[in-house]
């Protein structure tokens, strides 16, 4: 049982590259995705999945790692990168009606997509997305799929039908076990994500990449998008430009002025 092949789904999101300035577009406050990449935090989830399947003989031994994303056509980039890094196959949920979906509607569509993949042993996610940062998808998804959830794992092992995860708190660590199938979210301390291997990049071109619409998932437009969302963004604004600093001119009392300033900022 210990070495039996695993069927793992990894959630991968296409997010704006944190290296660049990030912007909102228009009144709908949609995110400018022109400079986007596979979310860095999801690379830890993918690495966790690949480490588990590598130890079990990889794809040759029947292990499957499916990279699943939900988003517009451009989001396929996240799946492609996952395939280059080592995922076995890709699944991309893409439907215009999904635009504006909040976490609730997103988790509904993701759950439906995962159900199309047959019996899954593990769903692995990152600890948050680096754009919306709700961190709620893993919990909602586990509830919708009826799976036990282990969140913020900083280490992960699978032995037989049990997943064991370590969660590190500020002043304690705990070990949590759950029976498979289960959902685990991993932190950025969980592992050291690999870079795509050149042969992996070539091999990725031949890997299976499926795109599904809402209809393929048996969902209707009103289940998702703004209509299917429980939350709406009522207002959003870009961070105001930084204001000029205060320059203290020393006319004998600079020290006092400095202390007053720091005290006013509650820094001392």
């Amino acid at each position: 049982m210990e070495n039996s092949a695993l069927n793992i789904v990894v959630l991968v999101k296409y997010v704006p590259d944190a290296q660049f300035d990030r912007h909102l577009i228009g009144d709908a406050h949609t995110i400018d995705r022109s400079e986007s990449i596979l979310s860095e935090l999801d690379e830890y989830a993918l690495e966790a999945a690949l480490a588990l399947t590598d130890a079990r003989g990889g794809a040759k031994a029947g292990n499957v790692v499916t990279a699943l994303t939900l988003g517009p056509a451009s989001a396929a980039v996240a799946v492609k990168k996952s395939l280059q890094i080592g995922a076995t196959q890709g699944l991309h949920v893409n439907d215009d009606a999904l635009a504006g979906s909040d976490a609730w509607a997103t988790s509904l569509a993701l759950a439906a997509a995962i159900k199309t993949l047959g019996p899954v042993d593990l769903v692995i996610t990152g600890m948050a997305s680096t754009d919306g940062e709700t961190s709620i998808i893993p919990a909602q998804l586990a509830a919708r799929l009826g799976l036990p959830q282990v969140t913020f794992a900083s280490a992960l092992e699978v032995d037989g039908g049990t997943v064991t995860a370590r969660r590190d708190g500020d002043d304690y660590s705990e070990e949590i076990q759950a029976s498979l199938p289960a959902l685990v979210s991993v932190t950025d301390q969980a592992n050291d994500p690999r870079y795509p291997n050149f042969k992996g990049i070539i091999a990725a071109k031949k890997k299976k990449m499926t795109t599904m619409s809402l209809a393929d998932l048996g969902l209707s437009a009103s289940d998702v998008g703004l209509a299917g969302s429980l939350t709406t963004v009522s207002a959003a604004a870009e961070r105001p430009a930084r204001t000029a600093g205060t320059i203290i001119t020393d006319s004998g009392d600079a020290g006092i002025q400095l202390v007053d300033f720091l005290a006013a900022q509650k820094l001392i």
């Binding site: 690999r194 870079y195 795509p196 291997n197 050149f198 042969k199």
Partner: peptide
């Protein structure tokens, strides 16, 4: 070495 760039 793991990424294999030298062997391309």
């Amino acid at each position: 070495v793991e990424a294999g760039w030298g062997s391309v």
